[in-house]
């Protein structure tokens, strides 16, 4: 009888939880931009993010570090070797670079290669080089659906990311879900609230007047709700990226996007 009561209570609590307006099917951040911003993203020539893609293509072929190797020396033509890669990140790295590391974001995976294979110094977060390579690699997955592995060693990161997504934070006491599940499509001042999808990242943001990573965008959200910002490359941000990628599954990669 006691057990029965507990189960009933559990069921009641479950029912009482608000039914979230799940982002299903997921909708690209592009759809929440104004007409001119969408047009800029669609314009393969004028999309400013393509400048970073072009620079990334150059860096891909440049030898670097004590090993004197370029990305292309190991990976060949990125058109084939990098096709679909960005759509599967963050990812628990099978090759163990660096050893013992769990889940890596694409930026971290690039830097792991730079350090271990090229024997060069890792690129700084948000540096032109790192953004160029990540934009170039992400662009090779354009049109391919996001699909991430959350099993095995990625399971813990996924759980952490999901918990963070629903965790109220900051002076505004808001969780990601409050804007991006419960209120997407509504407007905040003059701007429609998006679903917070990662498909267009790295993206050229008009507010920044430059290309930036998804982690920079996430940090801006932390700032927006007046919460302490996790550091670039922190386990929290990588976990959040993984949760967002899982949540976005099926959405085609559209990097580099353009956002207001």
């Amino acid at each position: 009888m006691k057990h029965h009561c507990e189960y009933s209570l559990f069921a009641l609590v479950c029912l009482a939880l608000p039914v979230f307006a799940q982002a299903n099917p997921p909708q690209s951040g592009r759809d929440f931009q104004g007409k001119e911003t969408r047009a800029l993203e669609a314009d393969e020539f004028a999309n400013p993010g393509m400048l970073w893609v072009e620079q990334g293509a150059k860096l891909w072929r440049e030898a670097r570090g004590a090993a004197g190797k370029s990305c292309a020396d190991c990976h060949g033509d990125a058109k084939q070797s990098m096709r679909g890669v960005a759509a599967s990140y963050p990812k628990a790295d099978a090759n163990g670079i660096p050893p013992g590391r769990r889940v890596l974001s694409l930026d971290q995976r690039i830097n792991a290669c730079v350090e271990s294979r090229q024997a060069a110094r890792a690129f700084a977060w948000e540096s032109r080089e790192l953004l160029s390579l990540s934009a170039f690699i992400s662009h090779q997955s354009k049109g391919l659906p996001i699909k991430v592995d959350i099993t095995g060693s990625a399971a813990a990161a996924y759980a952490r990311g999901k918990a963070l997504y629903f965790q109220r934070i900051g002076q505004m006491n808001l969780a990601c879900t409050h804007c991006h599940d419960q209120n997407w499509g509504k407007t905040l001042l003059a701007e429609p609230v998006s679903q917070g999808q990662p498909d267009g990242w790295p993206a050229y943001r008009l507010e920044w007047q430059t290309l930036g990573s998804l982690q920079r965008r996430l940090r801006a959200c932390f700032f927006g709700v007046r919460a302490e910002q996790p550091a670039f490359g922190s386990d929290d941000l990588v976990a959040l990226e993984l949760y967002l990628a899982k949540r976005a599954e099926g959405l085609p990669i559209a990097a580099p996007g353009v956002r207001r």
Binding site: L189, A190, W208, A220, C221, G224, Q229
Partner: peptide
């Protein structure tokens, strides 16, 4: 010209 709704660290 409208103002941005979300604050940023910049």
């Amino acid at each position: 010209v409208t103002a941005a709704a979300c604050l940023d660290e910049a």
